[in-house]
Design a protein around this nucleic acid. Structure first.
Lengths: 125, 125
DNA sequence: ATTACATTTGCAACATTGTTGCATTAATAA
DNA sequence: TTATTAATGCAACAATGTTGCAAATGTAAT
C-alpha cells in the first residue's frame, strides 16, 4: 500500500495555505516559498493536498485557480459557500457562512459548485 | 472617432457563439474555424465582442474561459444567472432563468458574479 | 542504526494558453 | 476610386501546466 510522506515542501505549502486569510494561486505560493522547492513540486503537492481534503480549489472570476484551507470542512467536506474576489487587492476570501439558494430545472445532477462574486472587499471599499 | 468594421473572422466567430447552445472556449472556436483566421485574431475578436456586449465570458469549474451569446441581455446586460458545466460532455450552458439568492456580509460591494455548477446535464444523466 | 523500498523531488523537455509589436491587408467613408 | 485606419497575420515571447526519469529522501522493518 502507498503511504503518504511528510516532506518539507508539503509541510510548508500546507502551512502557507492554511494560515493565509485569502486563497493563494500557484504563482503566489511559488513566490512565498522563495525557491524552497521546484515549481513542479508545488503542482504535485497541491494535487496531493486536494486529494487528502486538506485544501480546496477555487476558480476566481478571471479563471485563475487558487487554493484555500478547509476550515469549516472538518466534519463534512462541503464547499457550497460563496467566494469573494476583490478587484482591487486581488484577494480571494471564503464567505463560509453564506449559502446561496436557487431553483434548478429538472434532470440536472449537481456534484460541485463554484460561486464567486467580485467587487470590493471591506478593506478596499 | 474609431469605427468598428465587420470582417469575415468577426462575423463567423460571432455567429458560431450566438448559434451555439453551449458556451465555447477559445480552442474550441479555433477548431471550428479550421484555419479561417489566426489564433491571435480570435483572441482579439473575442475581446471586441465582449466590449460590444454581444457575448459574455464564463469561467467554468476548471478555470477554462468560455464565451456565450447574450440572449436575454438585449434590454439589460445582466449575467447574474447560473451556468451549468457538464462533467461528461464538457458543455457549459446558461440557465438564464435561475437567479440565485444569498445574504452577504456588510461592506462587500459586488460588481460581478460567476455562479457555476457542475455535474451531469439532462442529456448525460 | 542500518537497510530496504516506495514516495517524493528536481530537472529537462514539452504542451497549452495568452500577449505584444509591427508590417501588411482590407473595410469603410469620402 | 482613393484615403484612412481598423483588423489581420506572423513571429516572438511570457505564463501556466504536464510528463518521464533518474536521484534523493521519508518511513517502516530489521
Amino acid at each position: 500500500m502507498k503511504t503518504a510522506r511528510n516532506t518539507i515542501a508539503k509541510t510548508k505549502i500546507q502551512e502557507l495555505i492554511i494560515l493565509s486569510p485569502i486563497a493563494l494561486s500557484h504563482s503566489e505560493i511559488h513566490k512565498y516559498l522563495e525557491g524552497l522547492c521546484d515549481r513542479v513540486t508545488i503542482y504535485r503537492v497541491l494535487d496531493r493536498l486536494l486529494e487528502e481534503g486538506v485544501i480546496h480549489k477555487i476558480v476566481d472570476v478571471d479563471g485563475v485557480i487558487k487554493y484555500a484551507g478547509c476550515h469549516s470542512c472538518s466534519t463534512e467536506h462541503s464547499h457550497n459557500h460563496i467566494h469573494f474576489s476583490c478587484q482591487k487587492c486581488m484577494s480571494v476570501t471564503c464567505l463560509e457562512n453564506v449559502e446561496p439558494s436557487f431553483k434548478l430545472p429538472k434532470n440536472y445532477k449537481v456534484s460541485e459548485m463554484n460561486f464567486t462574486l467580485s467587487g470590493l472587499c471591506p478593506q478596499c471599499s
